[in-house]
Amino acid sequence: MFATLLPSALSSRRSFDSLSEEEILALAIGAEEEDARIYKAYAENLRERYPASAKVFEDMADVEQTHKNMLIDMFRSRFGEEIPLIRREHVRGFYARRPDWLVRNLALETIREQARAMEEQAFRFYTEAAKRVSDASTRRLLGDLALAEQGHEEIAQALTEKHVGEGEREEEDATAHRQFILTYVQPGLAGLMDGSVSTLAPIFAAAFATQDTWSTFLIGLSASVGAGISMGFTEAAHDDGKISGRGSPVKRGLASGIMTAIGGLGHALPYLIPHFWTATILAGIVVFVELWAIAFIQNRYMETPFMRAVMQVVLGGSLVLAAGIIIGHG
């Protein structure tokens, strides 16, 4: 069924060159309406955490609404009251927008980048649309809107200066940085530490007990994947982030689970090498790099004093490694 529906769906999309002037105006009206709705969604998403930036996007939504009204007035004067329903997805090669419900919980800088991309795409659309109309008043309007979209970065900057003072901007950037740490860095670092340290003993115990690299790799793989799944579910389930402000539990769970698995796989992968001592020496080098990298990340993102991080991670990991080797020899 899908095989028959897909070609039909694709063939129903029109090329931009085939659109009439009436359809170009209708497409522009729908695009401005959708952009205004997206900016309002951005504002709603940011209102609690970044109220000043939320006001910027509210004003940008008002600008898009003004553009839509100008286009509707032009359409009425030329074609009457019935506006054809034509959307971006009806035109081949036309730029797409993420649905409103996908903009929730986006980082502030990501939203700013997406807004800049939206204005650039709208500028290109109006530039091309103006080339395809012959009516002087319509062409002038589309050209003016192209210039307006091109100037939206300056408008956004002016609105930012109006609503977001230097102190507020610094505060919002600090809040965004703190949110990034709470949502990604902390769970990821906890996972990396757990995966790197907790799997040391079973992997090296198996290595020295069996001196079979393939068996050691399988044990390391199972320990790493199992630990990743466990850490991911634990992180996601124990806190929904609403009260703690730590962000989406799914994002935190993925960060923790993936980094846990990576931490364990780092010193399991060398045992794909069939020569035992070559694999073990390489695994030891990987462990050394892992532990010092974790200490650096703790110092860089968690503001943990470097020597304390070294004591916690490097010394602790070395003790776990030694325990695994001793148990394996026993």
Rank of each mutant, 00 (worst) to 15 (best):
residue 123 F to I: 00
residue 80 G to D: 07
residue 90 H to F: 07
residue 90 H to W: 06
residue 108 L to T: 07
residue 114 Q to T: 11
residue 90 H to L: 00
residue 123 F to G: 00
residue 111 I to M: 13
residue 73 D to C: 00
residue 76 R to L: 02
residue 107 A to F: 07
residue 132 R to S: 00
residue 81 E to K: 09
residue 74 M to S: 14
residue 115 A to N: 05
residue 110 T to H: 05
residue 136 A to H: 13
residue 92 R to D: 13
residue 85 L to G: 03
residue 71 L to I: 11
residue 91 V to F: 06
residue 76 R to F: 01
residue 110 T to K: 11
residue 83 I to T: 08
residue 112 R to S: 01
residue 119 E to F: 06
residue 104 R to G: 14
residue 98 R to Q: 14
residue 102 L to M: 13
residue 131 K to F: 02
residue 119 E to R: 06
residue 122 A to L: 12
residue 82 E to A: 00
residue 110 T to F: 02
residue 87 R to A: 04
residue 101 W to T: 09
residue 108 L to A: 07
residue 135 D to N: 15
residue 101 W to K: 13
residue 110 T to E: 14
residue 82 E to W: 00
residue 104 R to Q: 12
residue 124 R to E: 08
residue 119 E to D: 07
residue 79 F to P: 01
residue 102 L to D: 11
residue 135 D to C: 04
residue 131 K to V: 00
residue 77 S to A: 09
residue 124 R to K: 03
residue 82 E to N: 03
residue 112 R to A: 00
residue 126 Y to G: 03
residue 122 A to F: 09
residue 105 N to S: 10
residue 98 R to K: 15
residue 87 R to K: 12
residue 98 R to C: 04
residue 96 A to P: 04
residue 133 V to M: 11
residue 124 R to W: 01
residue 95 Y to M: 03
residue 91 V to D: 14
residue 107 A to R: 12
residue 111 I to C: 08
residue 100 D to E: 15
residue 91 V to Y: 06
residue 98 R to S: 12
residue 111 I to L: 11
residue 79 F to I: 01
residue 124 R to Y: 02
residue 88 R to D: 15
residue 94 F to T: 11
residue 85 L to Q: 14
residue 94 F to L: 06
residue 75 F to H: 05
residue 70 M to L: 15
residue 126 Y to L: 06
residue 111 I to D: 05
residue 97 R to D: 00
residue 119 E to N: 04
residue 114 Q to A: 05
residue 115 A to F: 03
residue 79 F to C: 01
residue 76 R to C: 01
residue 138 T to P: 15
residue 95 Y to R: 03
residue 93 G to Y: 07
residue 85 L to C: 05
residue 90 H to A: 08
residue 79 F to N: 01
residue 107 A to K: 02
residue 127 T to M: 01
residue 71 L to R: 07
residue 87 R to W: 08
residue 122 A to H: 06
residue 100 D to S: 12
